[in-house]
Structure formats: structure tokens, C-alpha cells
């Protein structure tokens, strides 16, 4: 076991290398620059290729090219750059090409700010680009998860032939903590018979997303949908912390969930039984797992660093028979454990 004291962004980049990353393309944007900086230094050492593209539009399309040749590919950016990539992400999804896309999200809309934010939840989880598709989305809340979920994202991307997104945030990306660098034994990138290699007299291969004849696009769309249904069965990740006896369950992801852990301890020291439900895969969302909590708890407290995006999903899943309160903080300052505890008391009249 290799125990390190690592920054979140470095953990993610190490995981990419350990997963066999062959091609990275990216463009400078704050606050994700640590990832390309790390990879420009380390990727060539293991025979991979690092390209600083002229824009995010170019980065994502470079991935489209490299992925079509069967290699593991990744790009990273931050919110405005991810917006520019949406065209390419839609094409990757339509062409069924695996790729890992990392969004160390910042605060928008527009140029916004470089502060902490979760304003990209809708964009990340509801497609983002045009067309009828979903891509898997993972939200790490620790440096270890920056590593583990990146490994996971590469595997899921290959397994379902889909782009996969890591929705990270500034806090998790910049903070340092202990990391165990563990690439699980036995995970191997699958053979990609669909990818371009040497042709060797084989049948012509075509990778595309344009389907004009008859109902072939409808068939294609249902095929993509079926993959999504499979992901719902197999790829859901979530975390529960002290939910069993909780009077109020906080629902949060990423950095907010991390802060909420401390809030829960603080609340319990003060006699208030809080718990935490944390979706780790935002797509597919752990709907059943969240809903099952309504058997023992009727109070849910959704906290996000936006004005209420995941809130829509939680309201849809939990329905109207439970008490849902929301606290949103669309600003660059991550709320402290005290802030969340005080909000819980205020919103639930304790």
C-alpha cells in the first residue's frame, strides 16, 4: 500500500495514470490547472500523450479521435470550459465512445467566479449537450474518492461505451489529505474490437452519430437508453452516515456532504440526531436507497452550493409526504459545520 499526503487534483491524475490513461487534452482554466500540470509532467513518463489544446472545443474533439482508436482518454476543465465541451460530449455519447471528463466546477453562470460552487448539477446530470442521452456522473467528497471514482469512471466508460463525468469541486480538488494509491487488481481495460487499429483485411469500421435512414436513429436512441437502464442496475453508489436513528437526514453531495459530516457530529453532541445521505453517483441517482429512508425518517434537509438543483430530484423521489427543507449557498465560501447546524435548527424550528 502506497500511503501519500496528496492534493485531490493530484490523486485524480494519479488514478488516471494508474488506469492506463493514454491520451489527455486540456486547456488552462482555474481552478483545475493542477490536473493538466501534473499530467504534462507525469504522463509522458509512462508513454502517454499530453496535449495542451487551443481550446476546450478542441480538447474534447481530440478525445473523440483518440478514443475511437481504443485508448483510455481524459480531459479536465472547469464550468465555462465544460460548457464549451458539451457539443463534443453529445457527439461522444452519440458515437458511443468512452472518455472521462472532469469538471472541477466553479461558480457561474457566465464567467462567474473561481470560488466553490455546485451550480453545474443540472448541466452534469441532465445531459448538458443536445439530444436524448445520459452519461454517468460521480461526485467525490474526499481525496481518496478523487482517486477511487476516477478509476471507477474509466471502467464504467469502457463497460458501457459512454463518456463519464467526474463532478468535483474546488474544495476537494485543492485540499490535501491521506491517500492510498490502490489500483484494484484484476481490472483490465476491455478489448475494444469496435475501435480503429490496424485493419488487417477486416470489415470496414465506421464510428459516427449521424443516422438518417429509416428508423435507425430511433433504434440507436433506445439502445442508448437501454445502457442507461443497465447502469441504474449496476453502477449506483451512495453513502449513509448515522441515518438509522436520525430525526433529520441531510441530503448533500461533494464538499457540502463533507462539511455536513462535521455538522452531524456537532448536532449529536448537542442532542440533535442528524444523519447524512450522500449520493456518490449523481447519475444514476440512488433513488430507491434515498426513498427507503422515508420508512424511518420524515425530515429531510437538502443542502447545496447553488439555489436548489438537486433539490428537484430529491423532491421528485421523496414525494409530498415528507418534510423537505432546503438551504442553498450560491457563493464562493464553503459553509462551515456551524453554519449548517444553525440552519438546520432554524429551518426545522428546533
Amino acid at each position: 500500500m502506497n500511503k501519500l499526503f496528496s492534493r485531490g487534483s493530484d490523486a485524480l491524475a494519479m488514478a488516471a495514470i494508474d488506469s492506463g490513461l493514454k491520451f489527455y487534452a486540456g486547456y488552462p482554466i482555474t481552478p483545475q490547472n493542477d490536473i493538466p500540470e501534473f499530467l504534462s509532467r507525469e504522463l509522458p513518463k509512462v508513454g502517454g500523450t499530453f496535449v495542451q489544446a487551443e481550446s476546450e472545443v478542441a480538447s474534447i474533439n481530440m478525445l473523440l479521435g483518440a478514443s475511437s482508436c481504443g485508448f483510455r482518454v481524459m480531459t479536465s476543465s472547469s464550468s465555462p470550459g465544460i460548457s464549451l465541451m458539451q457539443e463534443g460530449i453529445s457527439y461522444l455519447a452519440g458515437s458511443e465512445l468512452p472518455a472521462v471528463i472532469v469538471n472541477v466546477s466553479r461558480w457561474g453562470p457566465g464567467l462567474g467566479g473561481i470560488g466553490a460552487s455546485q451550480g453545474d448539477y443540472h448541466q452534469a446530470t441532465k445531459g448538458g449537450g443536445h439530444g436524448d442521452y445520459f452519461i454517468p456522473v460521480f461526485a467525490p467528497y474526499s481525496v481518496q474518492e478523487m482517486y477511487d471514482l476516477t478509476v471507477k469512471a474509466f471502467d464504467v466508460a469502457d463497460k458501457y461505451r459512454t463518456p463519464a463525468l467526474i463532478l468535483a469541486d474546488v474544495m476537494i480538488s485543492l485540499m490535501r489529505e491521506t491517500l492510498i494509491r490502490r489500483y484494484p487488481e484484476g481490472i483490465k481495460p476491455p478489448e475494444k474490437s469496435w475501435a480503429f487499429g490496424e485493419r488487417k483485411g477486416e470489415r470496414q469500421k465506421i464510428i459516427k452519430s449521424l443516422y438518417l435512414k429509416g428508423n435507425e436513429l430511433e433504434v440507436h436512441n433506445w439502445k442508448l437508453h437501454k445502457k442507461f437502464e443497465e447502469m441504474k442496475k449496476n453502477e449506483i453508489l451512495f453513502d449513509k452516515y448515522l441515518c438509522d436513528d436520525a430525526d433529520i437526514i441531510i441530503v448533500a453531495f461533494g464538499m457540502v456532504a463533507r462539511v455536513a459530516r462535521s455538522t452531524i457530529e456537532l448536532a449529536r453532541e448537542n442532542g440533535l440526531k442528524l444523519g447524512l445521505f450522500r449520493p456518490i453517483s449523481l447519475v444514476p441517482y440512488p433513488e430507491e436507497e434515498l426513498f427507503s429512508l422515508t420508512k424511518t425518517c420524515k425530515n429531510f434537509f437538502v443542502i447545496e452550493m447553488n439555489t436548489g438543483q438537486m433539490l428537484y430530484d430529491v423532491m421528485r423521489i421523496l414525494g409530498r409526504n415528507v418534510n423537505i427543507r432546503f438551504y442553498g449557498k450560491p457563493s464562493s465560501y464553503v459553509p462551515t459545520p456551524d453554519d449548517l447546524f444553525n440552519k438546520a435548527k432554524e429551518l426545522f424550528n428546533i
Binding site: M171, E177, R258, V259, R261, I264, E265, T336, D339
Partner: peptide, 9 residues
């Protein structure tokens, strides 16, 4: 295990 890396006070 540490929760919030940003302490309240």
C-alpha cells in the same frame, strides 16, 4: 476521520 477541512472556528 475528519469531516470538514474548513473548521467553523
Amino acid at each position: 476521520q475528519i469531516g470538514s477541512p474548513i473548521p467553523s472556528h
